[in-house]
Design a protein around this nucleic acid. Structure first.
Lengths: 222, 222
DNA sequence: CTGATATCTTACCCACCGGTAAGAAAAAAA
DNA sequence: TTTTTTTCTTACCGGTGGGTAAGATATCAG
């Protein structure tokens, strides 16, 4: 099972020899930190945990990162990068506001099943210093504003029923963000299944359309 | 503004004198612990924080509770109690599955704006010992199963469009649980506003129904 | 081969946290 | 008052975690 070793070697092996290759070692730290962070949360993940899993000692980590916060902030930035990619993709791909929301939900749900993506929403602002917190808040507001603008666009173009876009955005974002709380990579639900049904449920709702055999809907122009 | 002092005195004053009144003192501990827990999360909330806010010293707390986990678990139980109340209320109040889900969302959203309710979803299982974790998981599964049963009921009675009830329940529960992450008691959004729009959005979706002045829907029995 | 540089380890510091031991001070019971 | 019980404080312990100092070891440039 030899993958492309130059791209994604097992993080454990990145520190196997002391060849000078800071980039891949940094990457290895980030990957295992993200993994551990998801397993244990920021507060319970110690620098020793990270070091142990990489078969090195704690001080070695400080050769590549300033401190614990620095590591997790970097994971966070990678995750945000994934999200911003999909946001830009949606802006181009024109359509109704509703279609944009649907595309957003589908893509965002998928990102929430990727480790770095999950880190974004698992990171508690309370664990950060005020500088880092400010940065994180900026990202979050950007994403929230974007979703809200899609909803408002939909209301304007008639594809979305009038509503408070702020609350609607919180509702959708909440459902999506919570994915990282229950999703298990080896679980029964595949990312694709989740993304598809989320996109459907969050835009169309649960309610059955009146198209049963007993009832028929007729649209009449006036 | 004198409230009923026998019911809810300021937690700070509960320990003002040493009169023997364990019940209200316990309650005061729980309230401030819940408050602090919401402000700082379990890991960053120290027993000293709680004691300081009550104007006592740390060991005094151990007169009323066995340990830190015991305190938060008690807060958790109070919150779960609130949720189970609404669940039972909905079971009686008969109606379609969709109506039950709607009622659930409305009530649950409201509970998520009450401190003890918020504690339920902010409590990270990873912070607990295995015994407590087992208890917590039991409660959560009970709630999840209940919501899922409402959805399945709705699919059976035709009020809800066929879907994977598991994913749908995760979606709805996620939106609701996430409320405790952004809700601020003194913020712009009132609990009632939130509950009402959540109930609407999560059941009906965002999509505009074709009921504009240009179109009219007619239901015809066959 | 040699000196310079990057990499990593051993040993340590300090702050904090959950929890306890032992006893003082107040309140209730006698 | 005296005794007993509850309530609360001072002082402390063991463990852990982030982070650093200082030096050993390997890699690389020349």
């Amino acid at each position: 099972m030899p993958k492309d070793a130059s791209v994604s070697p097992s993080p454990r092996k990145a520190f196997a020899d002391r060849r000078r290759d800071p980039a891949t070692k940094r990457e290895a730290v980030l990957k295992t930190a993200a993994q551990l962070f998801l397993e244990k949360s920021y507060g319970r993940m110690s620098m020793n945990d990270v070091a142990d899993r990489l078969n090195i000692t704690k001080p070695a980590l400080y050769h590549y990162f300033d401190n614990k916060e620095d590591i997790l902030l970097e994971c966070y930035r990678l995750g945000v990068g994934l999200i911003e990619e999909i946001l830009n993709g949606i802006a181009d791909h024109c359509g109704t506001g509703l279609q944009k929301v649907e595309a957003f939900v589908h893509s965002y749900a998928t990102v929430m099943t990727v480790n770095f993506g999950r880190c974004v929403m698992r990171l508690d602002e309370g664990d950060l210093t005020s500088d880092a917190r400010a940065e994180v808040r900026t990202y979050k507001r950007k994403i929230d504003r974007r979703l809200r603008s899609f909803i408002e666009e939909g209301i304007a173009d008639g594809s979305i029923a009038p509503c408070d876009s702020k609350i609607a955005a919180f509702s959708i974002a909440g459902a999506l963000n919570w994915i990282c709380m229950w999703y298990e990579p080896d679980g029964a639900l595949s990312p694709e299944e989740i993304a598809t049904q989320f996109a459907r449920t969050l835009t169309q709702g649960l309610v059955a359309r009146k198209r049963s055999s007993r009832l028929r809907v007729v649209f009449k122009e006036e």
